[in-house]
Design a protein around this nucleic acid. Structure first.
Lengths: 173, 173
DNA sequence: GCTGACTGCTAGCAAAATGCAATCAGTCAA
DNA sequence: TTGACTGATTGCATTTTGCTAGCAGTCAGC
């Protein structure tokens, strides 16, 4: 099943895992948006992923060990997708991508504020965020938050502040 | 010509620039391998890019402002591709990708030693490397190297040390 | 001059991936 | 029993990729 790798270079192998247009966006929504169900990801995506692509990518990411899939006890047809340690450790990459994109690309203020806050927080904030993701997805206690708020809450508040300041109408996330 | 963006999210926009299987590898070879000519990239690539894909990607990266193209005075048909400030600032992303890939994927020791050294060097080393790239590609003096060697030389020496230790036959880069 | 290696880059074509819309069978609350 | 919802699947047109071959022009050496 596993196709041969093009090379043993870490950058290349990383690209073989998430070097397509969708995989990293799915992981982004799971990491920052807290999404864990198929429909949550499908409908919550700003970019509008197609359901067949999403199904394909979820399967692939599970096969690659980036996600795990389990049945949701509350609904026999529902599946819960969880991050694994490798995907949790994408946080620094997400931060680097967000910082770079915010600097050089035509980002919108609402959608880049999280990236900026995370980037400015530096490795300490990333570590804290990863600890919280481990608690959420792997059941490993993270301990109390230094400032009483989770990192995701902090990011969300920054986002909401921008939205409120920017104007009136907005609803997502 | 410019197609509409899927969203203003920095991660998404970054992926629209280099979220394919080849663009980032081309930039990797230019950054770490010092390659600046079409054939250098084509033949030096461990992964074996096809010439039409390379031509397409180079054109695209120039259009996007990630590279510049100029004629080589030494040969009327030769072109020199140079990094721009945005692509030079991919160094932290490359470092993060390299660190993550080295930890979680089946990398080869020879091809991952550079990533490890760069990752362990941290932001100071990245800054120094970027300064050297600015000198090389933009003509902005970098000042003397702290230890008398360029970062690329340091990485290359680490690579050669691994190759020498590992066995006998090797030639690339 | 002539040759032969080299320059960036194209052409042709099969295979694979993507995008889009419709649809599926099963589940659950009301 | 209805109707909304679950994670997917199907079919089909379009786009992208991968591979092989080849292009016209350039240059060094003889």
């Amino acid at each position: 099943m596993t196709k041969a790798h093009r090379s043993g270079c870490p950058v290349n192998l990383s690209l073989e895992v998430f070097g397509d247009k969708w995989s990293l966006l799915i992981l982004r929504d799971m990491i920052f948006g807290g999404r864990r169900h198929f429909r949550e990801i499908l409908n919550g995506s700003q970019e509008g992923i197609a359901s067949n692509i999403l199904a394909n990518r979820l399967k692939r990411l599970v096969d690659l060990g980036m996600l795990t899939r389990r049945d949701d006890p509350s609904h026999k047809q529902k599946a819960i997708y969880r991050l694994t340690e490798p995907s949790i450790e994408l946080v620094p990459i997400m931060a680097a991508l967000g910082t770079w994109g915010s600097r050089w690309l035509p980002v919108t203020e609402e959608l880049s504020i999280r990236a900026r806050v995370l980037g400015e927080g530096g490795p300490e904030l990333w570590d804290r965020f990863m600890a919280e993701l481990r608690e959420e997805h792997l059941g490993i206690p993270a301990g109390p938050a230094p400032d009483g708020r989770t990192v995701r809450q902090t990011l969300q508040e920054a986002y909401l502040a921008v939205v409120a300041e920017a104007g009136a109408d907005s609803s997502s996330v």
